[in-house]
Amino acid sequence: MKKMKQTTLRRFISLGLLLVLIILFAILGGGLFFNADNFIEIVRDASVVGIVGVGVTMAIITAGIDLSTGSVMALVAMTMANIYAYTLWPIPVMIILGILVGIAAGLCNGYIIGYLHVPEFIGTLATMGIFRSLTYIIAITDDNGVIQSQPMTVYGFASLGYAAGYFYLVTIAMIVFIIVGQIVLKFTRFGTNVYAVGANKKAARLSGIKVEKTQLIVYGISGFCCAVGGIFTAARLQSATAAIGDGFEFDPIAAAVVGGVALSGGSGDVVGTLIGALFMATLKNGVLKLNMNTAYQYVIKGVIIILVVMFDSAYKAHMDRLAKERGAKEGAEE
């Protein structure tokens, strides 16, 4: 199919990057890296990034960005920690309240971006600080006011960090999120609107799409995904600290970029982001297994993003040039 060419090619490139990385680590690390248990571990590590990545991907498709994901996760975890420490409310209520806080935080981002017209990266950079601050303000302290981490070991909650059969619950949740996310993007009117808003806001508006409302919902969804990511992170740690998700915001964005979600908006999907999330997790895992300084993963991540983005930009320029030449040729044929 001719129409699939460009996006399929991009998908192959993401998969290729992942494959190259796996092969590289397999050669360097051998059985230490290349075994089934380790792959399950990698997928587990990729899961939270994948879940949060669903929301971030949608934000990026609208030509936006969400830099506040790590802070929202922390805020959600700390909200739950407070409920856990100071009330006797049942665990499901605690989780629902956590999710509501995440959605509210996301809607804040959406409002700031859609209705106050603050550029996405500035707005979410600011809320990244705000949500982190709020987390510290509500953090659990000891009698001297020193911030403590709150253990959350009750089975009903901690079991979220366990495995069911071969797969961890978080992985199953991630798979659900990816499937639902892909369906929402590709098979609902809302999903089509998300692409339309990202590709051309003016045209979307002319076609009767409510751009601001779409943005509001997208960031709300991103907040929801962060909440779920925060819940699983706290469950895995069996505790909540104010530092949860510090620096996390980098990973879902990097995953989306590697997975072919164009930062200029209007293209990409959550399956691509999943591939990117696996790439990030493999990188982290491999560096660890090879006993390399963890610092290398930061360098490699950054370099890969720059290279991928440069490639995307050069590739787009190339396609535009081809289209122009095609146009000129057609014009000359008259």
């Binding site: 610092a295 930061y298 360098v299 993003i305």
Partner: peptide, 12 residues
């Protein structure tokens, strides 16, 4: 992206 690179370099 470079933020990550610089951090990694400092750590190395």
């Amino acid at each position: 992206a470079t933020q990550s690179v610089f951090l990694g370099l400092s750590m190395i």
